[in-house]
Write a protein that binds this DNA or RNA. Sequence first.
DNA 1: TCGATTTGTCGAACCGATTCGATGAACATA
DNA 2: TATGTTCATCGAATCGGTTCGACAAATCGA
Lengths: 344, 344
Amino acid sequence: MNIGEIARRAGVSRSTVSYALSGKRSLSEQTRRRIQDVIDELGYRPNASARALKEGRTRTLGLVIPPASQRLTDMQLGFVASVVDAAARADLDVLLSPSGGEHDRSFERVVTGSRVDGIILMEIRLRDDRVTRLQQTGLPFVGIGRTAEPEDMCWVDVDYETLISRCVQHLADLGHRHIALVNRSAELVAAGYGPGHRAQAGFARTIAERGLTGVELCCADDASAGHTCVERLLADHPEVTALATINEAALPGVYRALRHAGLEIPRDFSVTGVAAQHWAENLHPPLTAADVPADQLGAHAVDLLIQRIANSETPVRHLLLAPPISLRFTTAPAPRRSADGAAS
Amino acid sequence: MNIGEIARRAGVSRSTVSYALSGKRSLSEQTRRRIQDVIDELGYRPNASARALKEGRTRTLGLVIPPASQRLTDMQLGFVASVVDAAARADLDVLLSPSGGEHDRSFERVVTGSRVDGIILMEIRLRDDRVTRLQQTGLPFVGIGRTAEPEDMCWVDVDYETLISRCVQHLADLGHRHIALVNRSAELVAAGYGPGHRAQAGFARTIAERGLTGVELCCADDASAGHTCVERLLADHPEVTALATINEAALPGVYRALRHAGLEIPRDFSVTGVAAQHWAENLHPPLTAADVPADQLGAHAVDLLIQRIANSETPVRHLLLAPPISLRFTTAPAPRRSADGAAS
DNA sequence: TCGATTTGTCGAACCGATTCGATGAACATA
DNA sequence: TATGTTCATCGAATCGGTTCGACAAATCGA
């Protein structure tokens, strides 16, 4: 069931069938009809490999995700979903490639075997070998996230520095003087995870500007780690009355630990940060947070990539989003506390 | 940078380079070395489309997921992760295709354009057009889930009927007489979602066998729906003292509604069901549930598919898993209640 | 030393599409 | 009627690999 078979049954040459399919030359209505009938009858569709070989493009995008074994956060899942959706809208397929860990073969295959027309790279580190590798090869790519020197690459990113700064401002405006930052895991930050570092920077800067005191904590990406982390925070720094976080997966545990300690949110303790909208809304109480528009980011990344693929001379473009904080129900004026930090 | 270029630089023919790469014929150590050096120097890798065209296989698996816009449950995410991992271990790539909704073009492209060697189909309905379509085309495929007549296809599935039955048995053994089933959304069940129907069947059968009374509820896949659903349950059926569910996404809301109603889990109300282990453990209190081993299922599906691809005469095989219930902290003996159902 | 076998390499065909230049028929123009 | 256009279609080359048959050189056994 290849193009030759169609041609034979329709009594035309293979090239004529090809033109009927692509419309790149005019055909008599009569032959076009005949060819279309045969195609419909046999359910023929051109072989993707053959087409890719001749055309020099695969109509496929690569999506490089963090090693799949490590659970994706809600936000990451949102990115994947929106990339897949946006690609589907543009009639492009998506090839998934876990990278990092033991999966470097997969990354190399995708990058180097002409399997895809371009790549979307998630979870970029401040220094990232994969970016270097992609720049070597010249394959078009767009990052969701950015390296330390991001000028000569295309990316979309969330401005964690600004967002965490705004969170701290917001808490300071409410009278909180002692604020914690709950970051993502220590290993991730140590490995140069950009959002972690930028959140730190925004936090430290704003704490200093407003003359507050701040505590930084790292926390693994799950609820029980969030629980432990806040227990420790309350024990070691009882003066703290609010926290901001970029670790959405930890939030259920954060809530739980506060409740266990007899602190009601937001009356006794305020919580805010950066999270996927879906996640923030489904917590209880719903989280006052900067809602990361994962769907927009993913779709925009796909758009940028499509442009670069169409014309590799397209200037590199960036999109740095700092969505406003959505006020929900987890921040309130700082409670009055006695000197030792117990709630009044 | 194609095979001809390598051949020229190494001073051999293209076929010799090909044999050097595949090892399918013996070469002198000397020429093999020379060729390998050139390959390493230029970082050459064969063009995947050309290879796929000649070999007649793409070394790619298709993974058909529910429309990405609709959020994946934790369990579904586990399937995706394990499929991607298992495929990577077998040096296969994974092409993602959202299906259903507006994405039928994507499904057709994957199925019919010779883009993949085989397909893994998630979220199969009791009657499923995609299965019919795949059987027509003869493309090897394996379902995660199964249709109403699953004998002539390959699949792996979770035995929801047995699992929910066991949940009810467990609750009955603890003295509960009035038990609810929290199913997934009404639309999903109406659309012929297999697990929904099979859970219903197991529930109804066991309720009858043990002479209990049962209530069935449908509930959308998120926490707030779970909350509403349980509120309604408590209002309409105050005699109910326990529930079983296959709707893991609703569980946080289920817990919350029970707490709001002043019911402590498991003292006043027992909760159990089927969930991804990760999810069950991260709830608070951790859920007594049948832990679905998503990673095993996905890996097994990939294995089956690889076998079928290698030899399409491989007999169809099934795997129906009924993992044991892990006792955690959400079931307890039925509370004594007054006749109108209020806790004593 | 001759024929048989093994070893190492090459050339050509092929996979299934796309696309360019060519060709012949139909038609218009002079 | 000769000439130039336009239209519809075809044949052949091409994309970058793999693989089969051929063949020369080296090695072996008798």
